[in-house]
């Protein structure tokens, strides 16, 4: 469980458009890393290259290396589907499968892959994943009801439960709280704290306080202007980024003077 990520000279393209340029970053295992930066600077784009979700879009491609505990995700012969079982993802908008019950949503990673699982193992996995996502107590009486009948915050935690049910090494979260109220947000932040014990967590957020609260290290991305590629400007311990950043742009951004 829990692997480190090392990115070397990564360029990310949409067709001919260079969206993110020259990213070098080392993310330690069992840590929470926050990506911050103005809209359109390529945080989501970069995040999606960490589990090869980027190439799902037509024309999208990547240059450079992403090492997961030393293994290149983009090496030849690597199966992107296998990569995604190691690196899970939670999206900005909660997206439970509408045709499935809460239980089946949690088991989706197992069932959709056609793996056999005994009934008792399945029950155990559902309970441990839902407990892991702080959702068990709210849904334990209605596991057979559709997942889309939950509130937005509950749906998002269901998606987190679904992601941890496949037992990944890394969990990527793209603005997981942007559609949630402060209480659900707190529930998810608490959850991220707990997930840190077993997983490497990377989270994109527009909320400075959130980045400050949950993350060990913070990466600031910026963009020089429209049509220009986004770049990693500064990457350091979260306290350092927020208290004495080395780069002027970072200081301006975290102090709210721009972006």
């Amino acid at each position: 469980m829990s692997k480190r990520i090392d990115v070397k000279d990564l360029n990310v393209y949409y067709g001919n458009f260079l969206a993110v340029e020259g990213v070098n970053i080392n993310i330690a295992a069992r840590s929470v890393t926050a990506f911050i930066g103005p809209s359109g600077c390529g945080k989501s784009t970069f995040l999606r290259t960490l589990n090869r979700m980027h190439e799902v879009l037509p024309g999208a491609r990547v240059e450079g290396e992403v090492l997961l505990d030393g293994d290149d995700l983009y090496g030849s012969g690597v199966d992107p589907v296998a990569v995604r079982t190691h690196v899970g993802m939670v999206f900005q908008r909660p997206n439970p499968f509408p045709t499935m019950s809460i239980r089946d949503n949690v088991l989706a990673g197992v069932k959709l892959n056609g793996k056999r699982i005994s009934k008792s193992d399945a029950e155990g996995l559902v309970e441990s994943s839902l407990r892991g996502a702080n959702l068990w107590n709210e849904v334990k009486d209605r596991l057979d009801k559709p997942g889309s009948g939950l509130s937005g915050g509950q749906q998002q935690r269901l998606c987190i439960a679904r992601a941890i049910a496949v037992k990944p090494d890394v969990i990527l979260m793209d603005e997981p709280c942007s559609a949630l109220d402060p209480i659900s947000t707190l529930a998810i932040e608490d959850l991220i704290e707990e997930l840190k014990a077993n997983y490497t967590v990377v989270i994109v957020t527009h909320n400075m306080q959130q980045a400050a609260r949950v993350s060990d290290k913070t990466a600031f991305f910026n963009i020089a202007g429209t049509g220009k590629p986004g770049k990693l400007i500064e990457y350091a311990a979260t306290t350092e980024i927020f208290n004495n950043p080395k780069v002027k742009a970072t200081e301006d951004y975290v102090s709210g003077r721009f972006g």
Binding site: N51, M53, V81, V83, R84, F91, A108, G109, L112, N113
Partner: peptide, 24 residues
């Protein structure tokens, strides 16, 4: 989003189509 959610769980494309897209 549903397709991406399925891919992100490490589900192959044909299974995603068969078990997520068509049932929906």
């Amino acid at each position: 989003e549903l397709r991406e959610a399925s891919y992100a769980l490490g589900v192959r494309k044909w299974r995603t189509i068969l078990k997520v897209v068509i049932p929906t």
